[in-house]
Amino acid sequence: MKIQRIAAEATTEAAPDEVWALLSDRSTWPSWSPLGSHSSERPGEGGAPDGLGGIAQFVTGRHCVREEIVEREPPRRLSYTLLSGLPLRDYRAVVELTPAGTGTRIRWSASFLPGRPGTGWIYRLALTRIFRGMVTGLATAALARR
Rank of each mutant, 00 (worst) to 15 (best):
R129F: 09
L78H: 04
S109P: 02
W29P: 00
R66L: 13
I106K: 05
G54H: 09
A100C: 06
S84W: 02
T119N: 12
G51M: 08
T119C: 10
T102W: 04
L83C: 03
A141T: 04
E73G: 02
E71Q: 10
H63I: 15
S24V: 03
R72L: 15
I130E: 13
E9P: 00
I55E: 14
P43S: 15
L143G: 03
R124I: 03
C64I: 13
P99R: 11
R76Y: 12
E45K: 09
L35K: 07
V135Y: 04
A139Q: 07
R26P: 00
A15H: 03
A15N: 00
T11G: 01
E96Y: 03
R77G: 06
T11S: 04
E71C: 11
G118Q: 12
W29T: 04
I106N: 03
A15C: 00
T81D: 05
K2S: 12
W20S: 01
R107A: 08
A48T: 01
G133C: 08
E13A: 07
D25H: 08
W121L: 15
I69V: 15
A126W: 10
D25C: 04
I122L: 15
G46D: 06
L125I: 02
R66Q: 14
L35R: 04
S33L: 06
I6K: 01
G118L: 14
P99T: 11
M1P: 01
T11D: 00
P49A: 13
T119L: 15
G44F: 13
G54S: 13
P30S: 10
L127K: 08
G47T: 06
W108H: 12
T12F: 00
G61V: 14
L125E: 03
R66P: 04
P99M: 12
E13V: 02
F131V: 04
A144G: 01
Y91C: 05
P117Y: 13
P74A: 15
R66D: 06
L23F: 03
G133D: 12
A21L: 05
L138Y: 08
F131K: 01
R92F: 06
A48N: 10
R72H: 01
P74V: 05
L88H: 09
I122Y: 11
E9K: 02
P16S: 03
S39Q: 14
I6G: 00
C64D: 09
S40C: 15
A21F: 00
R145M: 02
E71F: 12
R5Q: 11
T98Q: 10
G46V: 08
Y80S: 05
E67S: 10
G133M: 09
H63R: 13
Q57S: 15
R76F: 13
C64L: 14
Y123D: 07
P16G: 04
A15R: 07
Y80W: 13
F58V: 10
E13K: 03
G137I: 05
R107P: 01
G115V: 05
V135W: 03
G51S: 10
Y91R: 07
R89Y: 09
Y91L: 11
P43T: 15
I106S: 03
P34E: 08
P87T: 05
V95H: 07
L86M: 14
Y123A: 08
S111A: 05
P30W: 09
Q57I: 12
L97K: 07
L113T: 00
R26M: 11
I69F: 09
D17N: 06
A144Q: 08
E68K: 10
L52Y: 09
V65G: 09
Q57V: 12
T102Q: 11
